[in-house]
Measured scan of single mutants.
Amino acid sequence: MEQGTVKWFNAEKGSGFIERENGDDVFVHFSAIQGDGFKSLDEGQAVTFDVEEGQRGPQAANVQKA
């Protein structure tokens, strides 16, 4: 798993970007967020995640709040 920080997340659209510790920013969709309840992330929040190849390039998967 990688570690990173939420660069921004739009709760209305359900997507945003995570700033990786090593590498380019990666797209995140709300469906990749693990946990119960409303799936959203806050700017500056620390997260851990896997990276998968999506239709438009790398994207975060199995996102967990650190």
Rank of each mutant, 00 (worst) to 15 (best):
N62M: 04
W8M: 03
N22T: 10
K65S: 09
G37S: 05
F17K: 03
A32D: 10
E12T: 12
K65Y: 09
F27V: 02
S40N: 06
R56Y: 15
V47G: 00
R20H: 06
G57D: 01
Q45H: 09
Q55G: 11
L41N: 01
G54D: 06
E43I: 15
M1A: 14
G54E: 04
K13W: 11
F38V: 07
Q55M: 13
Q34C: 13
V28F: 12
H29Q: 05
A32G: 08
A46Q: 12
A60R: 01
Q59C: 07
Q64V: 12
T48Y: 13
Q55R: 15
K39D: 05
T48M: 11
R56D: 09
E21V: 12
Q64R: 14
R20M: 08
Q59T: 08
S40I: 09
N62F: 03
V6D: 06
Q55D: 12
K13E: 08
V51A: 03
G44L: 02
M1S: 14
M1Y: 11
Q34P: 06
A46G: 08
Q45Y: 04
F9T: 03
N22G: 10
F27K: 04
D50P: 02
E43Y: 14
F9S: 03
G37C: 09
A46D: 08
E53R: 08
G54C: 09
N10F: 00
H29T: 00
A60N: 01
F38G: 05
G54F: 06
T5M: 09
P58V: 09
V47T: 02
W8K: 05
E2Y: 15
F30M: 08
Q34T: 11
T48K: 09
R56G: 10
Q64G: 07
Q45D: 14
G44A: 05
V26C: 03
V6P: 04
V28E: 05
D25C: 15
K65I: 13
E21S: 12
Q59L: 07
A66I: 15
I33T: 04
F9M: 02
F9I: 04
Q55T: 13
F49T: 02
T5N: 07
E52V: 15
E53K: 09
K65D: 08
I33F: 04
F9W: 15
G23P: 02
G35S: 10
V28D: 05
D24N: 12
H29K: 02
S15W: 15
E19P: 01
A46L: 14
S40F: 12
P58R: 10
E19W: 12
N62T: 04
V26M: 05
W8S: 06
G16Q: 01
D42N: 13
F9E: 06
N22D: 10
M1K: 15
A61P: 01
Q64E: 08
F17W: 11
D36W: 09
R20A: 06
G14R: 01
D50N: 14
I18D: 00
V47I: 05
V6E: 06
G44N: 04
E12D: 11
Q3T: 13
I18M: 01
T5W: 15
E19R: 15
A61T: 13
K65P: 11
Q59F: 12
F17P: 01
